[in-house]
């Protein structure tokens, strides 16, 4: 597989809303055929970047190339080749989910009927419900089924699992893995590090409109220290360790008489906190 062609190439992207600078020289490179994680805390500029990629927003500065074309000037032609799942899916209150799936599929140039049926089953989605009757997770499923069932080269998914329960999150991960196997490119925006780790070949991390890290997961391994929270007879333990230090740490805890143990990857916030020393004043602002 060719890994040299870029599905998405963004450099020096700037987007301002009035006085506030949502994107401030952002860089993003997504190779064809890869699943690319797009990470950042709330308000970092993920959705804004995606809207620029979709030609919904116009870049103030920088260069943006999508599937080899200009997303602003050639939006309509490029959109035939991609499917998009917004972070916050709003549906028409009086259209059924099935109607919306079929409409979006046709507007993109066709749906794979078999995949449509299979996806409805896997996501356990009732297509006969009206838009206003769906929960947030189910609205997201409508958009996901429409996207996965359409025959496109690129999937742009903006925090697509924020409303899904853990079982559905599993189904979603399986679907993304299948897309990768079929050679499609996926841009997956998320603020959940574990999800990105499970799915993505490469990751770009942004903060306050700027790219702070980009590379393969192996390259970023140094970022993924493990947080250990334990209760021992000697008192509580709270520390972060490199994966290589884990055997030693566990032995030490066993000697200290561990009664309870939780180990998890650092949250993005913890990661930034460590990466930048002081608390990043803008990284945690909400949308």
């Amino acid at each position: 597989m060719f890994r040299t062609v870029s599905a998405i190439a963004i450099s020096g992207l700037v987007k301002t809303f009035g006085a506030s600078r949502a994107l401030d020289g952002l860089e993003l490179e997504v190779a064809e055929g890869e699943v690319h994680g797009f990470l950042g805390p709330n308000g970092a500029g993920k959705s804004t970047t995606i809207r620029v990629l979709l030609g919904l927003l116009r870049a103030d500065a920088g260069s943006v190339s999508l599937l080899g074309g200009d997303p602003w000037g050639e939006a309509t032609a490029l959109h035939r080749r991609l499917a998009y799942v917004p972070g916050d899916v709003t549906l028409w209150p009086n259209l059924s989910g099935g109607e919306v799936i079929d409409l979006l599929g046709r507007l993109r140039g066709g749906l794979d009927e078999e995949r449509r049926a299979a996806l409805l089953e896997r996501f356990e989605l009732d297509p006969a419900k009206k838009g206003r009757a769906y929960s947030k997770g189910n609205r997201q499923k409508v958009a996901l089924v429409a996207a996965f069932a359409s025959d496109v080269e690129l999937l742009i998914l903006d925090e697509p699992t924020s409303g899904l329960d853990p079982l559905m999150e599993e189904v979603f991960r399986a679907c993304v893995a299948e897309e990768r196997a079929r050679g499609r490119t996926v841009l997956l925006s998320s603020h959940i590090l574990s999800e990105v780790e499970a799915l993505c070949d490469r990751v770009t991390i942004i903060r306050a409109g700027r790219t702070v890290e980009s590379g393969s997961l192996a390259e970023l391994r140094h970022l993924t220290r493990i947080t250990i929270e334990a209760e021992t007879t000697a008192g509580p333990v709270h520390e972060q360790v490199e994966p290589g230090e884990l055997p030693a740490t566990l032995q030490r805890l066993a000697h200290a008489g561990v009664t309870n143990l939780v180990a998890h990857p650092p949250t993005l916030e913890e990661l930034f906190l460590r990466h930048y020393g002081a608390a990043p004043e803008e990284a945690g602002r909400s949308e």
Binding site: N94, E99, R106, A128
Partner: peptide
């Protein structure tokens, strides 16, 4: 409930 399939194109 509404129709499970749609005719809108």
């Amino acid at each position: 409930p509404g129709p499970p399939r749609g005719a809108l194109a």
